[in-house]
Design a protein around this nucleic acid. Sequence first.
RNA 1: GGACAAUUAGCUCAGUUGGUUAGAGCGCCACAUUGACAUUGUGGAGGCCAGAGGUUCGAGCCCUCUAUUGUCCACCA
Length: 963
Amino acid sequence: MPDKELPKTYNPGDYEDEIYAKWEKSGFFNPDKLTGDPYAIMMPPPNVTGVLHLGHALESSLMDIMARYQRMQGKKVLLLPGTDHAAVATQAKVEKVLMEKGVEHPRQELGREKLLAEIRTYAENSKSTILKQIRKMGTSCDWSRLAYTFDEVRNRAVNEIFVKMYHDGLIYKGKRIVNWDAKLATTISDDEIVWQEEKAPYYYLKYGPFIISTARPETKFGDKYVVMHPDDKRYKKYKHGDKFECEWINGKVTATVIKDEAIDMKFGTGVMTITPWHDMVDFEIAERHKLSGEQIIDFNGKLMPIAGEFAGMDILAARPKIVARLQAKGLLVKVEENYLHRVAKGDRSNGLVEPQIKEQWFVDVNKIIPGKKKSLKDLMREAVTTGHQGDKKQKVKITPERFEKVYLHWIDNLRDWCISRQIWWGHRIPVWEKRSLGAKKQAARFNKKDFYSKINIGSDQDFIKKTIEWQNDDYADSSEIIGIGAELIRELKDRRLIDEYWIEKNRLDHPSREPERHVGVEPPKGIGWIQDEDTLDTWFSSGLWTFSTLGWPAYAEASAGKPAKKKNDLQTFHPTSWMQMGYEILFFWMARMILMSTYALDQIPFKDVYIHGILRNEQGKKFSKSSGDNIDPLEIIKKYGTDALRLSVIAGIAPGNDSKFYEEKVEGARNLVNKLWNVARYIITNYELRITNYELNYKELTSADQWILGKLEKLIKEVTGDLDKYQFSQAGEKLRDFTWNDLADWYLEVCKFEKSGDKPKILSCILENLLKLWHPFMPFVTEAIWSEMGKDRMLMVEQWPAHAFAEAKASAGKPAGNFAVIKDIVIAIRNARAENKIEPGQKVQAVIYAGKNKKLLAAQAELIKNLRTGISELEVKDGGKKLSDAIYAAVGEIEIYLVGAVDAAKEKARLEKEIINLEKIIKAIEGKLANQEFVDKAPEAVVKKEREKLAGRQAELKSLKHR
RNA sequence: GGACAAUUAGCUCAGUUGGUUAGAGCGCCACAUUGACAUUGUGGAGGCCAGAGGUUCGAGCCCUCUAUUGUCCACCA
């Protein structure tokens, strides 16, 4: 009685956008419209300039599965979306775009404000792109709470934290050795370095009485300390502090002997000279012994004046020339070609990274926090081990557990976190400085003479004119001119019209007193204050993500001109419930979130974190733009639908492990989606589903009914358990198995001829429950079917099932055995027919010796006949003589004979194969049972099971051989 | 140098405290075809669970070592 027309295949494009709009309109993405326990997931904000890639598709799927599951569990779910301004990446990208348009040096030519405007425009454009794409994935996030790491609200939070840390003495400014990316002209953190192996010549050089070795002779100009291990017997006669004169690259130098345990006696000659300005280890040695260092390479990667005639040369170009000089002076002892060493490159720029000493802002991770008796490191450590001892003892649970170890190891090796960056796109450091009067005079002198000539300014008039170009402020006051002048210097420096070295040198030549410093959320009132020109590491703001998105600090929202939320999100949703992320940002992000949250709120940022791997291509390599094998998720969606994409990215994944992605997987998922569609289509078009009373007449349930309800009951339990344990892939697999194998292949086939009054109720119940269970995985098709079923409420907010039917709980697993036997018989018959090559259309007669199962099988004879066994007549007996000229098959003790159409030779061969197989199995079980130790020590249930098994097999064998 | 993964069918992967003849999807072979679905159905073939030891009545699973692949951390002056 088909009263509906549904298309034969599910076409996702016809439904998805419409359904998403419906969801969004319903308001249920917003937890304010939900009740129940709060459950919050913060979306890891994608980079604002990025476009959706497979990694996002995976993350969106994971998050949305959890969000939808929890929502259906009756929780007040918040899945909060947002984007990240991705400081370095975004600025680099826009600079690149500008350069392609012919702007050769964007920073120099545009200056700070104009470049920032360019970046902002670009970021806003691509922000909307990626957000649209996240919608395409079906992600059920609350768009009303959309956040951005670089908006006003988040800026307020960043400043608050910075100021708090500063006043707690956890943030300091210091001259430290940092990683300088000359290409991007900024410092970068240790984590942003990639090491590349390179082959290069390796030089042994004569340094006074010693031989030292290096791959980088261009850094050696200023070396005046020679270091060796205090226990090295070879150099016993040299004492710490001994001085000697020796010939070096540009003439004689006075060298000092230093003894330090950092030296590896086994490496090379056991002696090295140090270059504190450009080497981390050397810097540490120099610090220990309070040695001075000198800058050799400038911030553009060129040699400094100390290099004499080599000054101004690019380091790589200078190297061979320096070697030639050394050789000419007889200082080159030998050269090892093809020495394998590793060079540091910036992961964004792929440019050389040079250690440099620079004044930078740091977060001290070892200092005891006032009032806490713990350092930031301690907080980070205890959050995943003993639990954070704040308000409540809370622990971040990491899945899989092994990453806990990786994380802790990383913390052990953690050095102070350099948070300042010399790029413009980012949160500006909330520190302002003002020079004191004495310093002002010096600064003025510094401004005028040197400075004017340096930048070709002839008079104060010119200077002011120039200044006005950049600053429109009042400049009447002289101290203000100094301020403006300082601004101007910065502007010129930004534009690379003067270089940093020159400024530094001037500062050294005109030492001033420490400037007055203002560190605050708001700029200082008054004149002459200059804001620190650096910006903050992007992870400084991302670290606040779990709470800066929830209205922390309290007044942030109001001050940004938005109405403060009535409800206190922070109180409701923090700590957040669940977080997922790739292992590649474990250190970058997870660690920083834990640091920020435990420090600022005394709370962990999230209770559970699920670490996923990355999706790789068919060859197991990372997808990359350069290799051209990038897969665009949107193309996949267009071709196969969002549901199929969601299923395919989570298929076969295990926590923390990488997985491969290829189109065949999506195809398989698409087929599954379509299968579900057709299951529903069949049920909807053949049954009247407008059911009000779900009461079943349990006594009249057929064995197939009981079987499928038992299976469904088990499915509900297992899928729920899997989702609770974040075993997404397993849950999906079980759902697939039920949908395709149990329901479509067996139960629906049975329903085609087995009619009973309860069938519509049962089928309706199965379909409803199945749609609910599938919904988190494939939200669109399930919602589409749900509405085709004529449901008023949306599936998205339906209650997650606990049981198939209330009473089915009792029947679950128990009588299912009946149908299982019939299934086995059907399979055995089909198999026997196929093996004997009986034409599918040819009907045969069958006789079954059922023994104690006679009653059951007699009752189910019709079922057996109808399940594509091609049987015309079926006779069920207790037992009897073997039948000759018949095909034989056995299921346990049940004997089956198919009469007629026998190919004697084929049948004989088949049976012999069976016998051999059975004998093998029996022998194995007998062996086991003959082992006294097994019988004694194994649990009774196991032994009993083995005995039963043996009896069954023996019976089978006996009847087989009988023939 | 240190650590962590992975190694199971041709391919991609499951296998949750050790207990039937180790499973699935894809692919392959044979067959079917007006049927809810060819994005289909039925049946089948295919595995010394990387290797070597060990623990145990019993090991894909636990322990030790080895090999291969991959990843991360540290570091080579």
